[in-house]
Simulated assay, not measured.
Amino acid sequence: MSQTIIPRAAVRGTASGVLFMAFFGTLWAGIGIRGLQGWGFLWLLILSLLIGVLLLIGGIKLIKNSRRLSNAMMEGDATRRSKRMGMMFGIIFGLEGLLIAAASAICSATNHLDLFVPVMALIVGAHFFPLAHLFRVRIHYIAGTLLCLLATITLLTLPVRVTLGHHQIEVWWATVGFGSALILWGTGVAVWLTGLRLLKRARNGFKEDVDSFRL
């Protein structure tokens, strides 16, 4: 039946992407809030959590609605490919974590903690490129490019910190934190819309099959 053209795993894959973007986007927003050193803390925290929760709900709804789809295509070569993709994702994600841990240790040991957040954004941005190739999701190329550009431009053009009156702002942390959050949240919305389109195609295909059967 046409319903199997859009397997459950495809929709749940997009849902997982939405959940990841919701979680990590909110974490980056937290870094941005910390960079402001108390300015607008409560309102920015509420706004960040609200955006994260909305994306989280969107991802959960995709998973819930995917239950009606078939997984008939997940056999043979498709199953083996799915397992391979899962293994490669684990390797990429694990390597990203190791690089971030190494960057943290080096920045701390050399007393350059200011560098850590921009360097971490570079690492996160770079990890999107193999993910884009692995999952064949072009939006990940855009996300990776934007994150790398954000970190690079911040390092090259902005001061580490500024003092306004008696208040000090960590410019690198605030800029990279909020910028990365917006990039990841935007990517999450794009992936969520892709999931909705997959669900719509699956439903339309199933409806066509039912109509053909009635005829």
Rank of each mutant, 00 (worst) to 15 (best):
A15G: 08
G25Q: 04
R138C: 13
S82T: 12
I142T: 12
L42T: 15
A109N: 09
I123Q: 02
R81L: 05
G38C: 12
T157W: 07
T152R: 06
G35Q: 11
V176K: 06
T163Q: 05
G40V: 01
M21A: 12
V117M: 11
G205F: 00
I46A: 05
G195K: 01
G94F: 07
L44W: 03
A190E: 07
M87E: 10
V53D: 13
G32Q: 01
F213R: 12
V117T: 13
A121N: 05
V189A: 08
I183P: 01
E208L: 13
L56S: 13
L62R: 03
A15L: 03
L44C: 03
I123Y: 04
I91S: 05
L215Y: 13
F116C: 10
Q3V: 04
D77E: 10
G35I: 00
R214K: 15
S108Q: 04
R8H: 02
W28M: 11
R67L: 10
F20Q: 12
G90F: 00
G76N: 02
M88H: 11
L199G: 09
T157E: 08
S66G: 10
T154P: 03
Q37I: 07
F135S: 12
I106N: 06
K83P: 14
S212C: 10
G86V: 00
I183G: 00
R136S: 14
E75T: 15
G38H: 07
V162P: 01
L156W: 08
L27F: 07
L158V: 06
P118C: 02
N204K: 14
H112K: 15
G125A: 06
L155C: 06
R80I: 11
W28S: 10
M1V: 00
A15V: 07
A105E: 08
A181Y: 11
P159H: 03
E208A: 15
L193D: 06
S66T: 13
F129E: 07
R136H: 15
L182K: 14
A151Q: 05
K61C: 10
G94Y: 03
W185Q: 05
L198I: 04
W39V: 14
R161Y: 12
P159I: 06
M87N: 09
G94E: 01
H133F: 11
G17Y: 00
I31E: 09
L42Y: 12
C107A: 05
G35E: 07
G32I: 00
I92M: 12
G40F: 00
V18A: 05
L55K: 05
L62G: 04
L62N: 05
L98V: 15
F135K: 13
T14S: 15
V11P: 00
G90V: 02
M87I: 02
M120W: 04
I33K: 05
L69T: 05
M74F: 11
L196D: 10
M74N: 13
F213E: 10
M87Q: 09
P118D: 01
K200G: 08
W39K: 15
S104P: 09
V124S: 09
R197A: 10
A10R: 13
A174W: 02
